[in-house]
Amino acid sequence: MENESETETAAQLDRHLERLAELLPDLAGALVLLLAFVLVGWIIGRALGSLVRRRGDRIHANFVSRLPVWIFAFLGVLLATDLLGWENLAAGLLAGGGMTALILGFAFRGVGENFLAGFFLVFSRPFRIGDLIQSGDLPQGAVTAVDLRNTHVRTADGRDIYIPNSIIFNSPLINFTRDGLRRPTFTLGVDYRAPLPEVRAAIVARVAGLEGVLETPEPRVTIASYEATHVMLEVWVWIDTFRGADFALVRTAAMEAARSAVLDNGWKLSADVSSAVELVDGRPSESGR
């Protein structure tokens, strides 16, 4: 009895080995086909990534280089299953793809929304790595990376913010460094008795020579408002961040230069005017002018 059972088991094992031996060529062919498709996708991805990377856009290069691999891998799986004679499985994958996508869409609606938003962000190109952006009411920061779910932004004070792509896609987006130009602005109060045309010219001449301040567009000084004891001037300078100009440092240097331009010519700043002028009904008195 035991001999009969052992014999039957050996026979079944032989049959399985025969089937496996018959299937091995098809398995090898399917595996080669799948690897070939993955390789083709990898080559195309590398080529597209290199092409995009030459334009200095690492965000799009990384995304474009990965997308063909997944597409060709999926096609390779379909053709490999067809080569093995598993037509029903291949047809099921194609027919069930829509239903699967629908089910997964409801189950992972947030993930899918962020993925699609990331896809459109990559190809709409609203920002690049290193750009200073602000999305909605969130703090502004430099773009560090973009993946399928979120965008990594690092603020000036060292905070790392991971913003879901759907928020950036659906909210107003400000790109401060799209063309590299930024405009530091500040105000400065001077005495009513100071000759304003000369004050403005002196400030422009002083800040125009600062390192990092562009000649074109040229610096400007305009009257911002008339206060009770002084005239408030607004100073504009332009910088090019692509040339390495630091916004905060250039703004500070411009503020110091504007202050020196006023004091060196003997004019008074708003703090000195406020302490020296006698006010009558909120206006400078005749004796204080």
Rank of each mutant, 00 (worst) to 15 (best):
E2Y: 08
E6L: 15
E6C: 04
H16S: 08
L17V: 11
E18H: 13
A21H: 13
E22S: 03
E22Q: 05
F37V: 03
V40T: 04
G45M: 00
R46V: 07
S50G: 14
R53K: 06
H60N: 01
A61G: 01
S65Y: 00
V69L: 10
W70Y: 09
F72N: 05
L78E: 10
L94I: 15
M99Y: 10
T100G: 15
A101N: 03
I103P: 03
F106Y: 12
A107W: 07
V111L: 13
G112E: 01
A117L: 12
F119W: 13
A142P: 01
V146M: 11
V146W: 01
N150D: 14
T151A: 09
T155E: 11
D160H: 10
I161C: 08
Y162I: 01
N165H: 03
I167H: 10
N175D: 12
P184F: 08
T185I: 08
Y192W: 13
P195H: 07
P195M: 07
V199Y: 12
V204P: 00
L210G: 10
L210D: 08
G212I: 07
R220F: 03
S225G: 03
E227P: 01
T229Y: 09
H230G: 04
H230K: 10
V237P: 03
F247I: 03
A254Q: 06
R259H: 12
R259M: 07
G266P: 00
L269N: 02
S274K: 13
E286Y: 08
